[in-house]
Amino acid sequence: MKYDKVAVAHAMPLTYAASVPAQPILGDDLDSTIPAELRSWLVRLRLLEGVPFANLVADTELLPAESMRWFYLDRRWTDALVQGALSVGTVNSDDRTHLTAQYPAIRDELDVEERNHRRAEGSARFGGRVEAVSGFILRSEAVSGWPGLHVRAFSVDPEESDDATYLETDPRRMRLLRLERLAPAVLFCLFDGIPKVVHVEEPRQGVQFGFHMRPAGQGVRATLFPRDKTTFSYINMDGDALVGPQDPDDGIAVPFRAGPGTSGVVDIQRLEQILRTNPKTKAATGADDGLDAAEYALQLIRFPYRQVFGADEGITLAKAFRATIAYQEHVSTTFRFGGNP
């Protein structure tokens, strides 16, 4: 997993911050330095809620279409953001001196409250404080196509099968501090810490149908991996050890129209004929006596697609933030007037 150091926050005037609606933390008005409502508002400000998108991504070239940018939050910038918000209440030098003296206690409370920002109502409060905050910004048609994308961060590689599920209480999972669509095709996510592995997965609600699509020359190729109608297992088409999506040789090419304006319309009758005439599939899929609606749906059903982002082995924080070209090297290779290096 590669992290790009992106400046994601600046100290802003309260003209935009005042527009962030306050949501009190019900039942959490503890004996603290600041009231619960103000604490909740400042926590959301610290998590960059209400910050203009232009201050998250300074230029559109930094987030082109179908791209993902990983980053760390610079806590000094978010501290400056909170200090700027609180400074509106100061009138004279005594007020500013008092605020300066109280800010360490305020910052400690916000560190703890960030971890409880997405806590389910009525559940026990989380202890400890948020240290490092990392995250990503994803710009993709997948965000607009599946508004309910699941994002899971792990402190270790879970190493389970592709269709495994993970409960919120799984000790390997890391807490999400924020998960929000900033635009129809832009997803913004913040993690409580620095994850080892991140899963981005299509929503599991409902039944999903589809094919495996792969680039093929100037177009795409659709593949169907037939299933046994009785056991629901993939059919071993070529007799080797690999079966199903892990083995491309077990797939059947799906006939479909791929020209302009056709939207990939599948030739259903032709696909049924292919299944019926193949000796490996005609009996196992039920195609030899004509696929009914349920059997055809069985062939099309697919588990939600999951994209796994894993840490690059051997990449340290110092290497991740090292400049690609050193300043001295840049100066020494700059062409001077006259064309001589």
Results as ranks from 00 to 15, higher is better:
G244V: 08
Y327M: 08
Y305N: 12
F209P: 01
T223K: 02
I274C: 03
D249R: 11
V308W: 02
E202A: 15
F211Y: 15
A293R: 15
L224G: 00
A323Y: 01
Y234M: 06
I315Q: 10
V265A: 10
A326F: 07
H330G: 12
M237F: 04
V254Y: 03
A293N: 03
A216L: 08
V265M: 09
G217P: 10
E201V: 00
V266L: 07
G259K: 04
K280N: 11
P226A: 09
R227F: 09
Y327I: 09
G310C: 08
A216P: 00
P255V: 07
S263Q: 08
L242W: 11
K280S: 13
Q218C: 05
E295Y: 02
I315M: 13
V243T: 13
T262R: 02
T230G: 05
Q328R: 12
A320C: 05
A294F: 07
D238S: 05
G239W: 11
P279R: 08
G290L: 04
T316K: 12
V243Y: 02
Y296V: 00
T324S: 06
R270N: 00
P245M: 10
Y327A: 07
A222V: 02
D289A: 15
Q269S: 12
A311R: 15
R276I: 00
D228A: 05
V265G: 03
L298R: 15
V254W: 02
N278K: 06
Q246L: 10
A216F: 13
Q273G: 02
D249V: 06
G290K: 01
A253Q: 01
A293Q: 14
P255T: 00
T285H: 01
Q269K: 10
D312G: 06
Q218F: 07
V243I: 15
G239I: 14
D247H: 09
E272Y: 03
A258I: 00
T285C: 01
V254S: 06
V254N: 01
I274T: 10
A283M: 06
I235F: 05
P304L: 04
A253H: 04
L224M: 13
T316I: 12
E295T: 09
Q246R: 11
D267Q: 09
E329H: 14
P260L: 07
A293L: 12
S263D: 00
R302W: 02
I252A: 05
D250M: 09
S263M: 06
Y305F: 13
F321G: 01
R270M: 06
V207L: 07
F309H: 04
F225T: 07
G244Q: 09
A323N: 11
Q307K: 14
G217H: 11
Y296P: 02
T281Y: 03
D250L: 01
A216C: 07
D267E: 13
L317F: 14
I315F: 05
P260G: 14
G210W: 05
D240T: 11
I315K: 03
G286L: 07
R214G: 03
E295R: 15
I301R: 15
V200E: 09
T316L: 12
M237R: 09
K229H: 11
I301T: 14
S233H: 09
P279H: 03
Q246D: 14
P245C: 03
D288H: 12
I235T: 00
F321I: 15
L300T: 01
A293I: 11
L291A: 04
A323S: 13
M237N: 03
M213L: 14
G217Q: 12
Q218W: 07
T281G: 04
G286W: 05
M213E: 14
